[in-house]
Amino acid sequence: MRRLAAGLAIAVALAALPSWATNQYQVHLATLIGVYWVLIAGLNLVVGYSGQLSIGHVGLLAIGAYVYAVLAGTWDWPPLLALAASGAAGGLCGLLLGLPSLRLPGFYFAMATLAFSLIVAELSLAMGSVTGGGTGLAVPGFPAPFDTPGGLYWLVLGIAGIVTLLTWNVASRMWGLALIAIRDSPVAASAAGISIFRAKLTVFVFSGVTAGLAGALFAALQSYITPDTFAFDIGLFFFVCIIIGGRGSILGPFLGTVVLTALPEVVAPLAKLGNFFYGALLLVVVLVIPEGIGHLVEIAAARIARRRRHESHVVQPDLPRLAAALARGPAA
């Protein structure tokens, strides 16, 4: 009940951000964080839960952005329909990328996603008649009520909220456990009857959909896109947000996204450091708290809990209970 109230309070505060923000730039920054989070929330199931090290999701982001820019701009589709098409295109490309690459061992999978993002970057440059080549494309915004900075923020907030809820539902159920089993012990996962490839492909396609949606929102927010907008750095940035936040958590990568997006913008000297800042932060996290900042919260909670009860390690089977549990059929 208290958690629900806290969640509600946060939702209201977030929704009201355009009214309490002191300038337009803060709204823009909050929107950008939301856009990144739409992608990272989906990617988190791939990287943080199933343990597949995709560093090429910027390619899927670019595909979503160009699909939106071309459909809503050149072809004059209704922007919201173009947004849905971007999600579909991201999912389809995720499927096409995942099918051949998800069977590869970790390192080679990471290289395949890297190669994918490089190919997308080259194609967006080469297919000038569609993408505008190096000159780029102007991107139309969304219709009212999403046509103001505040309106776009709400649209992004709404989509980010839905995506967060979906990933939360997955992570907190059997699927989340299965993904962690795939990450930490494929042998145990297959012994439990989990179809490893299918599960990996499913979450990868889901992350493609969220990356495609994020691409469309990103393009609308930037209002102009060129191949340079989708530099390989951004793909690494997404990955780093999850690692710094902590694997197997949703809150951690969310905090990672907020901190890593906002800090260089808010603290001017950090912006000058550019990728050095991300690199240094990543190094510190990996060396000092390899399980991420999300894990710090858990450790603190466990410390407090441990003080209260003493730890027993004595195994004492309860045989009648075991027999009763074994006699139970499959759950209804």
């Binding site: 539902n169 997955v170 059997m174 299965a178 439990a192 009857g193 989990i194 889901f206």
Partner: peptide, 15 residues
């Protein structure tokens, strides 16, 4: 995790 077979829910129905 051992009960994965009995859970047998699709990704979408879980999401």
């Amino acid at each position: 995790v051992g009960a994965w077979r009995d859970a047998s829910s699709s990704f979408l129905s879980a999401a």
